[in-house]
Amino acid sequence: MSDTMMVFDRRAVRAQRDRAAPAYGAFGFLKQEISQRLAERLDGINRRFPLAVDLGCHLGAMGDALAGRGGIERLVQADLSPAMARAAAGAGRPTLAADEEALPFAPGSLDLVTSCLSLHWVNDLPGALLQISQALKPDGLFLGAMLGGTTLVELREVMTQAEIDVEGGLSPRLSPFADLRDAGGLLQRAGFALPVVDSDWLTVTYENALALMRDLRGMGETNAHLQRRRHFTRRATLLRAAELYQERFADADGRISATFQVLYLTAWTPHAAQPQPMRRGSATARLADALGAVEVKPH
């Protein structure tokens, strides 16, 4: 992996999840909600997926949501954090500690791969998606959900201003997220067919910004940027950020809002039985006729 791909400190990501694991059940509401929404996408697919893998399982919310769906006979859970993997193993499903950047699965061995709210911490996302596609059988399915670019836009704004006000400068404090426009292209680059990407937004309200930050720590979702400052944030900076958050984003009851954008990714590994695009120029009807429009030829 080249240095230009290194954005996140994966050791820090693992350590944060390890620390979050014992109490994660009290903070995993977002994971549980998105896992249910992602698993529901199997309901409209008339296929069976006997062997499935869930990447970034945390405590197993995705496994719980997949139970009874998709004809799954065996689900293997994997997480970057050994502590999370040990805790998730209590659900009775085979679980291992594994890195999304170096998957341990044989080529063409899986029917389904899922990943819920974990891939946004991967440095080489195209490489991770390529490994997923290689691990899937032909006509295998990938279902993913990851945080998108407008996630925590409010917190980004106030932390930026607070750091300027208090410390006179800026440092990377919130991690970059993938953009909706790029996600489909990444799936195609990884060799997937029939990619579909859509997004949803969830708004969570908190008593104040400090409560939001406490939840992010409990989720194991705090700053893991390689260029982050390696010391605790100044108390004055946090208090200034909380003050700005209250001023700019509080509702009539004084509660502040936090936005989470979720990108949903659906894609299949290529297979001859899948629908194929028609040959260019083979259409037998004009689009202008179907739309009742007048076609204007270029000069």
Rank of each mutant, 00 (worst) to 15 (best):
Q246I: 00
A88V: 02
A21N: 09
M213K: 03
E295R: 14
P172N: 02
R235E: 10
R217T: 07
L110V: 11
P82H: 13
P50Q: 14
D64V: 13
L180N: 02
G60S: 02
A162D: 10
A293I: 02
L170I: 05
H225V: 07
H58R: 06
E100D: 03
L125M: 06
L80Q: 10
H120A: 05
L174D: 00
Q32A: 15
R280L: 15
G28W: 01
E157A: 15
M219W: 06
L66Y: 04
R156V: 05
L212V: 04
P275V: 15
P107D: 09
G169M: 07
R86H: 08
R69F: 10
A135I: 13
L119S: 01
F192E: 01
A288V: 12
N46C: 10
V158I: 11
N123D: 08
R240G: 03
A12R: 14
M213F: 13
F177W: 09
P195Y: 12
L80V: 05
L210E: 06
W201G: 00
P270C: 06
L96W: 04
A67L: 04
R280S: 14
V53W: 00
A65S: 14
R10F: 02
L210V: 11
D111R: 06
L143M: 01
T95R: 02
E101D: 06
P126H: 08
L239P: 02
N208R: 14
M219P: 11
L141S: 00
L110G: 04
D165C: 07
T259S: 15
L287R: 05
H225T: 01
D179E: 14
G90M: 13
L42D: 11
L216R: 12
L210F: 01
L244S: 06
D200H: 08
A61K: 02
A285G: 05
A211E: 14
L147C: 04
Q276L: 13
S81L: 08
P104D: 09
Y264Q: 12
E40W: 06
G281K: 11
D182G: 01
P270T: 08
R248Q: 14
L75P: 00
L112C: 00
L210Q: 09
T95P: 03
Q16Y: 01
A267H: 07
G56F: 11
M213G: 04
L170V: 05
D200Y: 07
D18L: 06
G56M: 10
A15V: 04
G44V: 15
L96Y: 01
R173S: 11
Q227S: 14
A78F: 02
G281W: 10
G168A: 08
D251Q: 09
V196H: 03
Q131G: 12
G254L: 10
A145S: 06
D198E: 14
Q134G: 04
R181M: 09
D18P: 10
R14D: 01
G184T: 07
D9M: 12
E247S: 08
F232H: 06
Y245P: 11
M278V: 15
P82V: 08
D215F: 05
T233F: 06
D139V: 04
E247P: 05
R17P: 08
Q227I: 03
T151H: 04
T203D: 14
R48S: 15
Q261T: 00
T151I: 07
R173M: 13
L174A: 07
I45Y: 05
A15Q: 12
Q276C: 11
V158F: 13
E40C: 12
D215R: 14
S282N: 11
V158N: 12
F177R: 08
R19Q: 13
Q188C: 13
